[in-house]
Each structure stands twice: as C-alpha cells, then as structure tokens.
Design a protein around this nucleic acid. Structure first.
Lengths: 187, 187
DNA sequence: TTTACTGTACCGGCTGGACGGTATAGTTGT
DNA sequence: ACAACTATACCGTCCAGCCGGTACAGTAAA
C-alpha cells in the first residue's frame, strides 16, 4: 500500500502542482477535480487539502509558480545569445518545459474566465512584449512578433495531441525567423 | 394567422444555439450548463431537450452552424476587394459577428479538450490557410500571416472583457498590415 | 360540425452521480 | 512529540438526463 518509491524526492506540494497542471493540460478545466489531482499525485484527498486548503489555494499556488517561472524566462529572453526574438519564437512551440506546461495550464483557467489566471497571463505577456520592444526599438514590430508568438502557442496547444494544422519543425522555425527579419526596422 | 409572440421571430432552436454560444463566450465551458442555456433562451429545460436530446447534440448543433459560417467566410476572404490578407487580418479582431461568437465558443470547447470542437477548428484553420496560400504564393509567408491572425484572435478573446494587453484599433491594424506587406514575396 | 386522434412544441419536477469541502481517527518517519 | 500524511465517511450543491404532463394545430371519418 505504501509508496516508498524514491520518486518522492520531489516534495508532495510540487507533485500536487505538477499533477494539477498535467490534468488541466490534458483534460481541460473540468477534469482537474480535487479527487483527480490527489489521485494523479498519489496522495490522498486529505493530503492534498493539507497543503492547499481549497481549490482556490491550489489555483493560486499554481499561478504563483507560473509567475516565478515566467520571470526567469523573461531574463532568459533578454540575455539570449541568438537574440531575444530568436529565443522567444523558438520557445513559443511547446517543448514540454515546466514553463510551457504551467503556461498552458494557466491558459485553461483563463479560458474558464478565472480572473486571477487572466491577470497573471496578462502580466506575463506584457513582460515579454516589453523585452521585445527593448530589442527591436519599434512598438508595432514588437507587437507583430508577439502576435506570431501567441499564434505559435495556440497552435502548439491544439497540435499537442494529434491533428496539427502544420508541423512546426526546427527548419520551419528558422524560415519563420528569417521572415520576421524582414519586418525589423532597417539598421 | 399570426404568431402571438412577435418578439421571437427567431426559431427556438437558433435561440438555444445563440444562448449556448453566449454562455461559452462570457463564462467559459463550466457556466454553459443545460439549465443556464435554457434560461438564457427563455425556454424550459424540457424544451431545450426537445430540440437537442443531449448536451452532445447541442454541441454538435453549435459546431455545425460554426462550420457553415466559416465556409461562407472563406469565400468572403477569397473574394475580398482589399485582398485576402487585409480581410483576414482585419476580421481577426472580434467584431461581435455571428462567426466571431461561434468561433470563440468553439475555442472554449476545444480548450476543454472536446475532440469534435478540435476537429472543426482544425478544418477551419486549414481552409483559411489554404486561401492565404493561394493569395501569397508562399507557404511560409502564408503560415506567418495565419499565426498573426491566430495571435489576434487569442488576444482579442482575452481583451474582450477588460484588461487588454494592447488595444487593437483601426489605425494599429493598418500599421500591422503594412508591416505584413514587408514579408510578402517581391513581385 | 362534432368527435377522435396524431404530431409538434414545450413545461417543470425528479433522480442519481459528481464535485468541493469538512471532519475525524489512525499511521509513519524524525 | 510533532509534522506529514492516509483512509473513510459525510454534507450541500450542482448538473445531465429522464419522464409525465400540457397546449394546440391539423386531419379525417361520422
């Protein structure tokens, strides 16, 4: 009955957050019930409520972790060797990174009209846009690049589970970035 | 012989579909319950189930109408006086048109992982992409334009109810279209 | 033209299951 | 001893789907 598995090197709290995100990504808001989250994290329902006293607390915990990851990422974008635009576009297709998963999970909640999730996602986008604006020195160009990034995210999200409208391969991303080069202000 | 109810010139079936879409758009998947749909359409629950024998049937009815609207729209894009790209981009921000509403409603279901909704949305996107490809004669450029369109849709959807990351005005759309002009293959 | 019947459109109460949350008694590792 | 759980039972609410009605329009034979 006991899980003495060494898998529990990860704290239960984080495993619960991971399970919550996974359920949101795979099955949408409706499937992410407290019972399901507890089961997926191999924790009893009581155990879940020990760490997060309500579903709202679970959501806030998840959004807080997303926000922290996004802050790190903004710094990665700013200091990327190949440049912010290259980095942003390439990381806009899902790689299965913690930030990816957390971001999609947050999107699911935002689609469910959760105001906290909408707030956090809005903040993250503003942060990214600001970094790109600093890099390209033109608001309209920055906005266009952000739109492409947004589009990639959405498509990647739909494509994740079969039936992609189009594969976004490394080569196609390179061609896309070349194309974006044409809208950058001439230096 | 006249209808004693002049207000409901719209058939009940369509009013139910309208109400379903509205609830999906405004409140997400969770709020679009059968009771809520019936109430919003000023019909009893029994009346709803007379027209749509299950929630699945309601979803399928909504998606069928969306698909029909999208087919008309693809034709509008192809034959637009200002050109397909101009038309596609300008109609990617929400105007409150029936297609807009239906499309967002479909997106909500797709985020909830409904395979029928994902299928329909995928078909629609492929149709649009195909029209743009015919217009710009380059797959990569067409894909980039579609990504911007996707991005506009998502942002418009988040912006709809307060807290837009950025207003998308008529002027900013014109500037965006000018920018897109730079990635078109030289003629 | 009355009576009997049929189909369409709709009402509203009910049930069973799922979900969020509470409670509580017991267990395990440090 | 205390924190970190497990296990189980329970409550109120919400929801999808079901069912027994009602109202009425048309139709058709007597």
């Amino acid at each position: 009955m006991s899980k003495n598995v060494p898998a529990s090197s990860v704290p239960t709290r984080d495993r619960l957050l991971d399970a919550f995100e996974e359920l949101l990504v795979e099955g949408g808001e409706r499937s992410a019930t407290l019972d399901a989250v507890a089961a997926a994290a191999a924790v009893s329902k009581g155990g879940l409520l020990y760490h997060f006293s309500s579903k709202g607390a679970l959501i806030e915990g998840m959004l807080a972790r997303l926000d922290a990851l996004a802050k790190e990422d903004a710094e990665n974008i700013r200091t990327a060797p190949a440049g912010p635009v290259d980095y942003l576009i390439r990381t806009s297709v899902h790689t299965g990174s913690p930030l990816d998963r957390a971001y999609i999970a947050g999107s699911r909640l935002a689609q469910g009209r959760d105001p906290r999730a909408m707030q956090v996602l809005g903040d993250i986008r503003r942060r990214w846009l600001s970094v790109i604006e600093d890099a390209v020195h033109d608001p309209d160009t920055a906005e266009a690049i952000m739109l492409i990034s947004d589009g990639l995210y959405v498509n990647s999200s739909l494509a994740e589970h079969e039936l992609a409208p189009q594969e976004h391969t490394a080569e196609s991303m390179t061609r896309l970035i070349t194309l974006i080069g044409r809208i950058l202000p001439q230096t």
